[in-house]
Design a protein around this nucleic acid. Sequence first.
DNA 1: TATTTCTGCACAACCGATTGAGCATTCAAA
DNA 2: TTTGAATGCTCAATCGGTTGTGCAGAAATA
Lengths: 342, 342
Amino acid sequence: MRVTIKDIAATAGVSATTVSRILNSQSKKYRISEKTANIVRKTAKELNYRPNQMARSLRLKRTHSIGLVVPDIANPFFAQVTKSIQTQAYKFGYSTIVCNTDDQHQLEKDQIDLLISKGVDGLIVMPVGIEYKHLESIRGEGIHLVLMDRVFDDVAFPSVVVDNYAGAHEAVSYLIGKGHRRIGIIQGIANTSTNKERARGYKDALRRHGLEIDNNLISGNDYTRENGYIETKLLLSQNDPVTAIFTTSDLITIGALEAIFEENLNIPEDISIVSFDDIEIAPFLVAPLTAVHQPKRLMGEMAVKMLLEYLEGNEENPTKKIVLKPNLIERASVSERIPVTS
Amino acid sequence: MRVTIKDIAATAGVSATTVSRILNSQSKKYRISEKTANIVRKTAKELNYRPNQMARSLRLKRTHSIGLVVPDIANPFFAQVTKSIQTQAYKFGYSTIVCNTDDQHQLEKDQIDLLISKGVDGLIVMPVGIEYKHLESIRGEGIHLVLMDRVFDDVAFPSVVVDNYAGAHEAVSYLIGKGHRRIGIIQGIANTSTNKERARGYKDALRRHGLEIDNNLISGNDYTRENGYIETKLLLSQNDPVTAIFTTSDLITIGALEAIFEENLNIPEDISIVSFDDIEIAPFLVAPLTAVHQPKRLMGEMAVKMLLEYLEGNEENPTKKIVLKPNLIERASVSERIPVTS
DNA sequence: TATTTCTGCACAACCGATTGAGCATTCAAA
DNA sequence: TTTGAATGCTCAATCGGTTGTGCAGAAATA
């Protein structure tokens, strides 16, 4: 049997109340003598006492844990954000329960329910991103959550995101600046905010430079390597193929690399790529990626800070939004082209 | 206020006991009429009841959550294992609380204490790996834990590991078979089981092929990219430099790649590499890595299965050990050499 | 000496679930 | 009609903490 506060009380010859107060540093407040306090602390140590957080949480209605809902922990982008969140939360005395949704809406709902059942004080969610009714109902119950990475157009949640539009715009403008005219895009999950913004950035950049938007060059529907592979294969097999691709995630890019090398093409000589995310390994890929860098650690830290401010009641604004600026990192996956006027 | 079992009892006009029994599918056992059961189930749904797991766990002494202690979630190897564990655990109705130790012993101890306080039913630990007193004392308290990846020589815990010796032996033998004679090794954290075994495999492979062990070629002390970078720089600057390096983790390898390209050397023409782990991205690095593949998903699944068997009392053997075979995946980071007889 | 004020601690309720024991009522058997 | 067994449900204790209130005895004041 694990040692409880009662065991300490018994061996120290005081009441459980007293033990509790001493161990919670409330001896002064409740006028408990230093002598008694010392005895209790000593026996607690001797018995190797470990407070039962379940009992504590039940009474206090605080678990000091947060739920983290993430599409895919094995994706390096999410892995890095997760680490940042976990580390930051721990610093403030919170532990993190991690759930994986595999970008499945139902799983997301189930996992969130589970987390709430477990009594998490709040949630950081990187949602699948198409539906949000469940999130609204949760907020309706007074449970704090902050969204990360993906948000929703028609409803405001507290959130930490990157300016995906600006990032994409910069990426595509960069390609245009390098002389590329036929630029493809491989999109992520349709209807997610990240994807919509990145696609919008892509189109606006083209338009701004007087280029036409060719729907044949707009492809893809998932942030996965598989999607990157397939769509690149297709893009490369077109009549007037692209000279550059804007891939909307590093995982997509990896699939693209696979396809490109399979076709015996070289990067950046035959085909240029600008990617999104800029995971740690991006510089060390076959083609060191020129990529839009997302400040993953910062994002995680801000999300935690924001959530904790809500939890501690220091944040008034119920839908605070933080938009971080991404920045383009130039490496070696883009070549200069002499534009061919068609 | 969140809706409790009492609320349901009140609106349904029955006792809390009855509600509890119905919602736990014990209506038959306790002879509760279908009529009552239906009413209760209906009102539970209507009130959007979510059981309070803390209360439940307090009473049942089961939280249905497991603690996962991992050195670095952002390391793709651990990220993949973590995902596998999380997914598998969820399948069996367990959630996973993830803690990061950054390979710091004190953090590991603290995090484990915290997890136990939170009432996890069991632990899967990838320990820093040098000290194990805290793990023994935990086991002494009757808390189940299974070790992964790293284990200890002089004390037996239930564990899931890979045959690091065999993997290393195969890797180095492969290099020798390709004609390499001056083969360096960049080690991970000293005194960890993984590192000791891999180093032993390295040495035995050399010896077996009649090669001398040159201590100048044995370097490194951490599974990080930084260590890979530094040690490779040093290896390359020796008088009679290596023609091949056995890097004991993919993260080390990435640092090595950095150093090698900085020196304007090519892989595999100038220098060959065999790595360890074989993370998902390994095929897409500047040099597609020939690497010892660890079955990450399998490892995670087995660890979960094993832990759950202990938890459910189906496993008698208190120190069951599972050793999985790694296998060498050939890609393009090793070249053939004509051995120079010195 | 009587009264008030501290000092130091304990009682008991509570958080939200689970569970062994028990209590009416109904129905069948004797 | 009485006894016994089902039937259908409730009581109250429990898990391990936390907390408002209260109660002695000692010290201070009158």
